[in-house]
Design a protein around this nucleic acid. Structure first.
Lengths: 122, 122
DNA sequence: ATGAATACATAAGTTTCTTATGTATATTTG
DNA sequence: CAAATATACATAAGAAACTTATGTATTCAT
């Protein structure tokens, strides 16, 4: 029994694809479950990717030829590794750049009007 | 005829509510159309809130008692001003803090593994 | 041997936008 | 002064991207 102190996860919408592409870019190849655990670990449990979100996304990225797969067996249990295709590397770069820009824009919005007569000291 | 160099706007999903609450926090009171224009202006046209997204959101925030309204008339044309209620100020603060934290977490994710043997120099 | 962790998958439902449409007033421009 | 654009509201249908629930199966820990 554990509590989940996550973000009201509407925020994750729209960023998940980029997060996954970025992880694959940095790590070469990963399998689904590994991705969920890595994100959980890197974000100190603050972002937890659900499997219901991840697997369909991976399938879609494979269908669009941004990812390719190879299946391996650990004992009798299958693991499906994903890696970026050449096209996927471009997509990845584009998405990551876009996300960084978006974050900058957000920060402008969040900081707008700070320090004017309105919002003085809180 | 104009081109719209916007973000692949899946990114906006989830942040719109917070953006609106933040603007109202900083500006006291605003009306719908004003909000769309302010965001457009502040983000140098990079984020454009559609009316189909904004008005239902404002109505929902009013229904949840985070916002209250007062209608004014400019000539014969009506303007509906929105302002944060006391509860809305708390909601606003919570959402903004959450978004800032989320951005930090995202940056950790985007920068993970940078500077290791994998990703050297690009 | 029982529960938890690992590892995949899909389906139904919800939220949250986009796109399209509608109404009406005010201003600019040719 | 007519027509286009801008201002100002609103709602409905559809799409996208999740969550929640469920299912199967293997492996590890107690």
């Amino acid at each position: 029994m554990y509590i989940c102190p996550m973000y009201s996860s509407e925020l994750i919408k729209g960023t998940l694809r980029t997060i996954v592409l970025n992880l694959l870019k940095e790590n070469g190849r990963m399998y689904g479950y590994e991705i969920t655990q890595r994100v959980k670990e890197l974000t100190d449990d603050k972002i937890q990717i659900t499997e219901g979100a991840l697997y369909p996304l991976l399938h879609a990225l494979e269908a669009s030829e941004d990812l390719e797969t190879e299946v391996e067996f650990i004992g009798k249990r299958q693991r499906k590794y994903y890696r970026l295709t050449k096209q996927g590397k471009q997509t990845s770069k584009k998405k990551i750049d876009e996300l960084r820009e978006f974050i900058e824009t957000l920060q402008i919005l969040l900081d707008a009007n700070k320090g004017t007569s309105h919002g003085l000291i809180n």
